[in-house]
Write a protein that binds this DNA or RNA. Structure first.
Length: 153
DNA sequence: GCCAACGTTGGC
DNA sequence: GCCAACGTTGGC
């Protein structure tokens, strides 16, 4: 299957791109939304490219690129009542929530801010810019992916 | 199955 | 801190 492109949101106070650079890899746990879950479980595959977006912070922006290194598998943090995102309606036998593993490729030379992206006509139909969008994991076209990277240079 | 109430997200 | 938008819950 062809490489596909995605945008993952994270609040930098919670987990930033620098945290991912430091860790070298992470599992993208804690997603508790069915639409995002379906992407993680069914669509996002090893080798796919991901833009890392900082949300809910002073300057919301795409800050780095990463790559999926493991296909979707059950999010075990849901089974753990001591985790940050417990959901005991999910079990090992019948998991409700899924995650993938990612590794950083590189930090962008310059962050591509939300306000900049809003001003770029090629990006008007990007899902991130749609009104009321709240998905933390969303698909991205190759064109939008490439455009955002060119804006960071 | 409807829908009001509520909680969360996330930009500003 | 405000608030619009959205998803989920639960009574009926």
């Amino acid at each position: 299957m062809a490489t596909r492109f995605w945008l993952f949101k994270s609040e930098p106070t919670c987990y930033s791109f620098d945290d991912l650079m430091r860790d070298g890899t992470t599992h993208w746990d804690g997603v508790r939304n069915y639409q995002a879950r379906n992407f993680l479980r069914d669509e996002i595959k090893k080798g796919d490219q991901v833009l890392f977006y900082h949300s809910n912070c002073k300057e919301p922006a795409v800050v780095g690129i990463c790559e999926v290194v493991r296909d979707g598998y059950p999010d075990h943090t849901a089974f753990d009542s001591d985790s940050d995102h417990p959901d005991l309606t999910s079990s090992r036998e019948n998991p409700r929530w899924y995650m993938v593993d990612v590794e950083p490729i590189r930090k962008l030379e310059n962050p591509v801010s939300l306000s900049l992206m809003k001003d770029v006509s090629d990006l008007v139909d990007m899902q991130l810019l749609k009104r009321g969008n709240r998905l933390s994991v969303m698909p991205l076209s190759q064109e939008h992916f490439s455009k955002i990277i060119s804006l960071s240079e």
